[in-house]
Nucleic acid binder design. Structure first.
Lengths: 222, 222, 222, 222
DNA sequence: CTCTAAACGAGACGGTACGTCCAGTCTTCGG
DNA sequence: CCGAAGACTGGACGTACCGTCTCGTTTAGAG
């Protein structure tokens, strides 16, 4: 599959951000790269190209030129630009969010996770995200980031502190904040504001997982 | 420079290379269409083409051939295939969900709305949806269907029946079921099952909007 | 923006819509042509197309199809169909008239040259010639064939035999037979008959270049 | 047939010499033209358009806009732009050269005729001429201007003055100066200089038609 | 003076070719 | 054998203009 902008607009004299960018200095005649070195250079070039021109205008040709290699080298590794872009993204973002926050306060933990997620998803522009989804047909699992597991850890800790009624927490509820944030990005094309995150957490998530204060009273009184 | 013969010769009654869809019966030599008639034929053809080959393979040429017209006629109306596809979708789906359900039961109403929404969004394949989003960069408002207004009507009625604590209902909460369903479609590429809808409603939505039973008990008992 | 599926599938071995000219036998799956081989095939195809449909209906697309290649390959070599047609002509006609006739008789030599020129210019239909001139704005020198140099050689030999007064021969006079023939082709759209050629030679050319018989008598008598 | 320049060059933002040129002042709402009035306006507009943009870029659309009418009105009168352009030319040039010069000197008469012809053929650019020939396939007789008849008149008068041996004059010889001038225009795209005309007359034409001086001497002496 | 038939003007329609761009494949050569 | 370079086949793009057609308006000219 392939996405490209309509050339309705006068196509601009193509100052070609890449044409003038030899991958190595003139006359250097760098020796031929292979294996991991080459892979790394390719992914780095792909990421730069993606950042420079956007997914719609990303072409294998452009990446090849920027990397100082040929299209064949790319096709030998990735079947099309969607997979290339995905690989470039994975190669670029900070590993994953295993740095689970632990501030001692549930709200703060959840907000921290959402902000981290927002930062990562901000790396990949919504345009890129839509393009990838259009070509891949399904979201690659590792883009779902902030898998429930992270949330479950946070929630378990909060439950130990009495902030959460762990029985109320289903997988879907644990995934809820992440899902809503992702939905926002997909639909509006922009990550949510801090207020948006707060709304999710305060209006929806926390009410669903915090213990019902009156129930405990009643229970206690029963 | 360019020289070419005049198309004086009768242009042959369009033997329609696309065998499956002759625009009109052989020899009929339908008179030239205009205005609304033509608009309708174009959108119908676009929708058929979209259903037949999918968004990725949708081409202006293909639609033009199927409609028995030329690309120029399409470009005169829509600037690119994204807008064409969107218009075709709008032209095809049952108007909108103004048929607000009113079963007397909140859960049933919400489920009905979600099912209707699922039916409509099922009309547009996820592939198409992603493609559109990739090219439009932002969700056209009328694809957000099931705008909060519909939900608010349902919720207001439920509140009158005492099923809902209207004070708990914020716009975001009203939009929640629709957003989660849309998220599901966008991320998995498939609309949710009935169980999925039930989960949304029973685990998340209803708990957020129903009056706290114990509080009333307590209040009543106080 | 634009999304389209990858042409990964084997693109079907070109069933060649132009029935008359399969570029290669069925199922042969000829290996990809390059360089001079391809150049030659392109020019040959262009010439065939030109002969088949005429210049007015000559299209880059048609040539590409006949050559079993794509328009891009043509445009990489020639900027438009005029240059392509010209190149095809040059590639097709027997080199040039370096085979200068030498029959020992001036009239016969000139007639031979004119006939050769007629044969060559007959290769390029007047329609094509006009089309080329319309697009090129000026006659390419090598289409002027029968450049004065050929005529000068013939005339010099004739002068040695006493058939020509070389002092009377200006470049314009040497070019005269060729120019008149070309004029005839350009204006009437058909090459001249044998009678026409004879008229040019006997009425106009020979009287201008043969020595005045009486002058020599007088001179001899002086 | 149709000639049009390749749009290789950036097509210029089309300041459209005609778009801003309503055929009549704003708000005037000129009454609808018919018959000869309209014919004249159409031909005038066609000639202006031809002068403004050249034959290659001449379009029926452009002429219609300039004339403040529609294409249908043009097509009702002329089957294609070649005939339109030809009609516009005929409508524009001073009638024809019936003003046969009579200076009392053969050389001067012939030069006068050639200059007149050059002026007229200068009105129609070679580009236009080639375009017309390409589409008409044969030269319209009235473009051959300075048909032999004019020359024959001049030559007959000269013969009466003893400047010409009328027996030497064949139709082809009478047509010779005109043919060579036309050839020059067709081949080089530019009308000949005064020197060129003089060359034709002095080197070729006059020697062919003037009585042989020595023959008369000899005859006189015999 | 009214009525009618024809032509006008405006612009959309169905169609063809343009010249460009990029996909994905293949060939060639050098290391 | 693989990397680098780049040409190849294929196909859609969006534009331009063709010649035709439909529609509503205007204008002669006949009765």
């Amino acid at each position: 599959m392939r996405i490209q902008v309509s050339n309705s607009a006068p196509p601009a004299p193509t100052p070609s951000p890449r044409s003038s960018a030899p991958a190595y200095a003139e006359g250097e005649r760098r020796s031929r790269r292979r294996g991991a070195t080459l892979d790394d250079a390719l992914l780095r070039a792909a990421w730069e190209e993606l950042s420079a021109v956007g997914y719609a205008k990303l072409t294998m040709e452009g990446v090849a030129v920027r990397a100082g290699t040929s299209k064949a080298v790319l096709y030998r590794r990735w079947p099309n630009r969607a997979h290339l872009a995905l690989a470039a993204y994975r190669h670029h973002v900070v590993p994953v969010a295993d740095q689970i926050p632990d501030t001692g306060d549930l709200r703060e933990d959840v907000m921290a996770v959402l902000r981290h997620m927002r930062r990562n998803s901000g790396e990949m522009s919504p345009e890129t995200l839509h393009g990838l989804l259009a070509e891949l047909r399904t979201m690659p699992p590792d883009l779902m980031e902030l898998l429930p597991s992270v949330m479950m850890t946070i929630l378990r800790r909060a439950a130990e502190r009495g902030e959460v009624d762990i029985e109320k927490v289903t997988p879907r509820i644990a995934a809820l904040p992440g899902d809503l944030q992702r939905h926002q990005v997909l639909v509006t094309g922009r990550p949510g504001s801090d207020d948006f995150l707060a709304e999710i957490v305060d209006e929806i998530f926390l009410p669903l997982v915090t213990p019902s204060p009156l129930r405990s009273q009643t229970t206690a009184g029963g």
